[in-house]
Design a binder for these strands. Structure first.
Lengths: 211, 211
DNA sequence: CACACTACTATCAAAATTGTAGATAGTCAA
DNA sequence: TTGACTATCTACAATTTTGATAGTAGTGTG
């Protein structure tokens, strides 16, 4: 006697989404070895050939995940910097949000893995930080201009942005190990203190000097 | 007619060394998928069971590599900060050396991979940055004391060290992608400029304010 | 209702990878 | 020289993993 098996049939788009979600979770949690078709499939509750059906190959899955992660990151970052709530938020809040995006959501780890595995170089680059700099620099220049101070170069703003990026990514991936090597006992508390300290450092570079 | 095959027989120590060298190179160059016993073996010019003979298992190899990398990093960093040449080198030269250690030798990439794969948490931690802070902080405090200025807390020095570490690691792994996202064309030149700019930022935090 | 479309499954094939077993050959010490 | 030791090899086994094939079952449209 044969069992009638219930199939849940999703739209192709929905199927791709849940598969990518599962792959993302596995990769962020379990590291480089975590992206096995069978495991991902069983997480979703489907058979592994279904993944191949939607993504052609394992590599196709990886590339799709890379692209989606990049795009999400771009959107999250721009939301943090140009959303309505960012209008009068100070840099502490914004940096807190950036760090949160990169560490809590595991984006730093994901990106690190993608860089190491070479997937990221096969995916289109959209000049995220260039655009971010172009968003920030005019405002910053204006602040200086209003006070009659020498306007900092765009390159200076770019370097501040790059430092923010490198540090936020670096903290997301290397942070825990660095804090351990620093002999820190209260991870969570120190993490927040460090981020605040760093945000203050960035702020003192960004704003015009006190008159 | 049988060919007499020449075997090169190394001491166990030497064999372990060349195997770890090859594994390190593959991992830094090729990423997570680069650590395959057969490939490493053929790089060295041996058969893959020889690797198993020396390291018990693939995992044993990974752990041995993790430990060695950590120890090398520790030694390199301490050499940069307390070696004879570091006596009157300024922070620009020291940071340049730190960045070089982490990027050129691929240590940042290696460490990133080890974190992602979970290997690093199975290896002893020696509080490298804590020790580094204890090496630096007294000197720094003395500089302030001599000038009759309020002495910064050890925590402040620790944060500067942590920022240096996070940024140097972050740059070693994420740097190229960040620079690409920043729309930078001349990678090498910008990299140097950024590092100098960052070293100057660190210096301005570290030294006593101008009288 | 009938039919086309396609998301999905079971099963198989092929390749790669780690690990085992037993034989072989350098090396050193007695 | 002889013998013990062990670094290294060849050959094989077991497992895992990606991918191919062909058929099944929801879903929407004429």
């Amino acid at each position: 006697m044969e069992e009638k098996i219930k199939r849940t049939r999703r739209t192709a788009e929905e199927a791709r989404r849940v598969i990518l979600d599962a792959a993302e979770r596995r990769l962020a949690d379990l590291g480089p070895e975590g992206i096995r078709l069978q495991d991902i499939a069983s997480d979703v509750g489907i058979s592994h050939p279904t993944i191949l059906h939607h993504f052609e190959s394992r590599e196709g899955l990886v590339l799709a995940l890379t692209e989606r992660t990049r795009e999400q990151l771009r959107q999250d970052l721009f939301a943090a910097f140009s959303g309505p709530s960012a209008r009068d938020a100070d840099i502490h809040q914004i940096m807190a949000r950036v760090f949160e995006i990169l560490s809590k959501r595991g984006h730093a780890r994901l990106t690190g893995w993608m860089i190491l595995s070479g997937a990221i170089s096969q995916t289109p680059d959209r000049g995220m930080l260039r655009d971010l700099t172009d968003l920030i620099h005019p405002k910053r220049a204006e602040e200086f201009r209003l006070r009659g101070l020498p306007v900092p170069s765009r390159e200076d703003t770019l370097f501040v942005v790059m430092l923010g990026a490198v540090t936020a990514f670096g903290d997301g991936l290397f942070g825990p190990v660095v804090r351990q090597a620093a002999g820190i006992t209260d991870e969570v508390k120190t993490m927040e203190q460090f981020r605040d300290w760093f945000a203050e450092l960035l702020r003192s570079r960004m704003i015009p000097p006190a008159q």
